[in-house]
Amino acid sequence: MRVLIVLAALTLLGGCAVGWPDTALYEGIPQPEGPGSNSTNPADRPTNVMLRQRTQRLFPAGSPEAPLLDWLATQKMSVRRYPDQDGGVRGSGVRYLGSWPCNRSVRVTWTASSTGVIETITADEGDTGCF
């Protein structure tokens, strides 16, 4: 009986291991820290620092939004855009990683002006839930 419990626990924990997809966003970035990594300040985690720097380097404030939207699609992210009060947009691209019992996500969020120019952009990854 103990053997079955140990095997079940290992199977569940094995489902928590999440690797990066094979796309340009993640190239050269350390693997996600795993369940519980949100216990430290997420903005300071090396993975988030590198994701944020990469997106800000590729799509800096002042650049057009359209290439960002195309790029997010190649990263297999689900993109949503919402109008804001100033006539611009707030956008997010999300990709969920992993599977039950633990999920993680990578998010790119930005704002753009009414003329389609990026004003702010950031990216991060983190837990979306572990049973």
Rank of each mutant, 00 (worst) to 15 (best):
M1L: 12
M1F: 14
R2D: 11
R2A: 05
I5E: 10
I5S: 07
I5Q: 08
V6Y: 04
A8G: 02
T11S: 15
T11D: 01
L12Q: 01
L12M: 05
G15L: 06
C16Y: 07
C16Q: 01
A17W: 09
A17G: 02
V18L: 10
G19I: 04
W20Q: 06
P21G: 08
P21A: 07
A24I: 07
E27Y: 11
G28D: 14
G28V: 08
I29S: 11
P30W: 01
P32N: 09
P32Y: 11
E33L: 13
E33D: 12
G34F: 03
G34I: 00
P35L: 07
G36M: 03
G36F: 13
N38V: 03
N38Y: 07
S39H: 05
S39Q: 13
N41T: 08
A43D: 03
A43G: 00
D44V: 00
T47R: 04
N48C: 07
N48P: 11
M50C: 06
Q53I: 12
T55E: 13
Q56V: 11
A61L: 06
A61N: 02
G62T: 09
G62Q: 01
G62D: 13
S63P: 00
P64S: 15
P64F: 10
P64W: 14
E65T: 12
E65R: 12
A66Y: 08
P67L: 02
P67E: 15
L68P: 10
L69T: 10
M77A: 03
S78E: 14
S78D: 13
V79H: 00
V79W: 00
V79K: 01
V79L: 13
R81I: 07
D84C: 01
D86F: 14
D86E: 13
D86P: 06
G87E: 08
G87L: 08
G88R: 11
V89A: 11
R90L: 13
S92Q: 14
S92W: 11
S92P: 01
G93P: 09
G93S: 14
G93L: 09
V94S: 13
V94C: 06
R95H: 15
Y96H: 03
L97Y: 07
L97S: 05
S99W: 06
S99V: 01
S99A: 11
W100I: 05
P101L: 08
C102M: 15
C102K: 08
N103Q: 11
R104K: 15
R104F: 12
S105W: 12
S105P: 02
V106P: 02
V106T: 14
V108D: 10
V108Y: 14
W110D: 06
W110H: 04
W110G: 00
T111K: 13
A112M: 08
S113R: 11
S114N: 10
V117E: 12
V117Q: 14
I118R: 03
E119G: 05
E119T: 14
E119L: 07
E119Q: 15
E119F: 06
T120C: 01
I121Q: 04
I121M: 06
I121W: 05
I121N: 01
A123H: 02
A123M: 10
A123I: 00
A123T: 10
D124H: 09
E125M: 00
E125N: 06
E125A: 01
G126H: 10
G126C: 05
G126T: 13
G126S: 02
T128M: 01
T128R: 04
G129Q: 08
C130E: 04
F131C: 01
F131N: 10
F131S: 03
